[in-house]
């Protein structure tokens, strides 16, 4: 609790239990995400990586325990209070979650139009700047359906940061991307963190990029979390983590064997 007040953690989960029907997803899960750092949430599929982000965003409420975001316990907040807390948060969904009836420009402009009194000219300038920052130009008038996976993810990233949130939650940014696009998204995320000091919480099962970018790793296993920096965790040598790392490495080497040039 004390480390909430001194601001070390901007997001903190305390003793969280979550049940979905008969299935226990989290039991006594406790973990924190430091201010201004990049935290990568690792874990096999189905362990609840996305659910963890949804808990932080207040989209899912835990059965027990507390979730602190920017110093506030969101498990006690009403729906309308949650809408105010979410102003600290931006979220990049795996599929992008861009509104498919609006153009890319209107999608990125939406939070500004809803929450600020900026003039259309100012909004156009701001949106243009953000789209440029994620390396998208000349796509303003396209509908999201026309974009490739990597492009729509970058557009969604532009939308997630357009209101300058303090914390950005990123769900599986690397899945289904070719190595070039993967590095591009990775560099964008690192750049956001280093340049703007945004606290990032990223879910992934991509070991190489985790090793490159993570200040802290939260490994989800058996409904609980192991956290620390990657070297620390490897040092501690939890067999479940070692098994996970070995399996993911194997998958990577197999891919590399089939397409040796792919990591270029």
């Amino acid at each position: 609790m004390s480390n909430l007040d001194d601001g070390e953690f901007r997001v903190y989960l305390e003793d969280v239990d979550l049940q979905r029907g008969q299935r226990t997803i989290f039991q006594g899960l406790t973990c924190g995400f430091p201010r201004g750092g990049i935290s990568v949430v690792l874990g096999g599929s189905g362990v609840g990586k996305s659910t963890l982000l949804r808990l932080i965003g207040g989209l899912v409420r835990p059965n027990a325990g507390r979730v602190f975001v920017a110093g506030q316990d969101i498990t006690r907040q009403s729906e309308s209070e949650l809408f105010r807390t979410r102003e600290y948060l931006g979220m990049l969904f795996q599929g992008g979650a861009l509104l498919d009836s609006l153009t890319v420009f209107d999608n990125v402009a939406l939070p500004l139009r809803e929450h600020t009194h900026l003039s259309e000219a100012d909004i156009a300038g701001e949106v243009g700047r953000r789209l440029e920052a994620v390396g998208l130009s000349d796509v303003d008038d396209l509908l999201p359906g026309k974009l490739s996976g990597g492009m729509s993810r970058r557009a969604a990233l532009a939308r997630a940061i357009v209101t300058d949130p303090e914390i950005v939650l990123v769900d599986e940014p690397f899945s289904g991307l070719d190595p070039v696009n993967l590095r591009r998204i990775e560099n964008l995320l690192v750049d956001l963190n280093r340049r703007l000091g945004i606290t990032l919480v990223v879910t992934s099962h991509h070991i190489a990029s985790t090793a490159r970018m993570a200040d802290q790793v939260v490994f989800l296993v058996d409904a609980q979390a192991l956290s620390g920096s990657l070297p620390e965790l490897l040092e501690a040598g939890d067999p479940r983590l070692m098994k996970f790392m070995a399996a993911e490495r194997d998958a990577d080497t197999q891919v590399a064997a089939i397409a040796p040039e792919s990591d270029a």
């Binding site: 949804r54 965003g57 989209l59 809408f83 105010r84 979410r86 102003e87 948060l89 931006g90 979220m91 969904f93 795996q94 599929g95 979650a97 861009l98 509104l99 498919d100 939406l110 939070p111 809803e114 929450h115 969604a156 939308r159 209101t163």
Partner: peptide
Amino acid sequence: MVQTEQLDGLRMMSI
């Protein structure tokens, strides 16, 4: 829109 998380996306933008 529910399936593709567009409504959750709106919620996360405080809409």
